[in-house]
């Protein structure tokens, strides 16, 4: 059993994440049988200062499939729900292929990479 949580961002409101990468990652997560959290758009939650971000940033180690680590860190910070640098790994769906993102999400180890 993996000890970390998985959070997937669907980046619903812009075409900045290649659709095939988003679809590939979500499909693989669904097929894997793993537990995970998914949100429509982290930017929207940050814009609304939605309490979901506090829930998503708490609860221990987390791997986040979203976009650039610097942006994800800033979004959580701006919403007042800082991510922990020691227990957060961010996978960038803007630059990485779906397979590489999924491999890291499902890998048992956590490689913290917050800037």
């Amino acid at each position: 059993m993996n000890r970390h949580r998985i959070l997937y961002c669907h980046c619903q409101y812009a075409q900045v994440v290649p659709p095939e990468v988003k679809a590939g990652v979500l499909q693989a997560l669904c097929d894997s049988g793993a537990s995970f959290d998914a949100v429509a758009d982290l930017c929207e939650l940050a814009a609304r200062k939605d309490p979901s971000l506090a829930r998503l940033s708490s609860g221990g180690c987390v791997k986040i499939a979203a976009c650039y680590p610097r942006a994800v860190k800033g979004l959580f910070h701006q919403a007042g729900s800082d991510l922990s640098p020691d227990s957060t790994e961010i996978l960038n769906m803007r630059t990485e292929p779906a397979g590489a993102v999924v491999d890291r999400l499902l890998a048992p180890d956590l490689q913290p990479n917050l800037p």
């Binding site: 059993m1 993996n2 000890r3 949580r5 998985i6 537990s35 995970f36 949100v39 609860g59």
Partner: peptide, 15 residues
């Protein structure tokens, strides 16, 4: 626009 948690018991999810 919903937030979804799929809980299969394999690993933790947000609290």
């Amino acid at each position: 626009g919903h937030a979804v948690t799929l809980a299969s018991g394999t690993q933790p999810v947000s609290p």
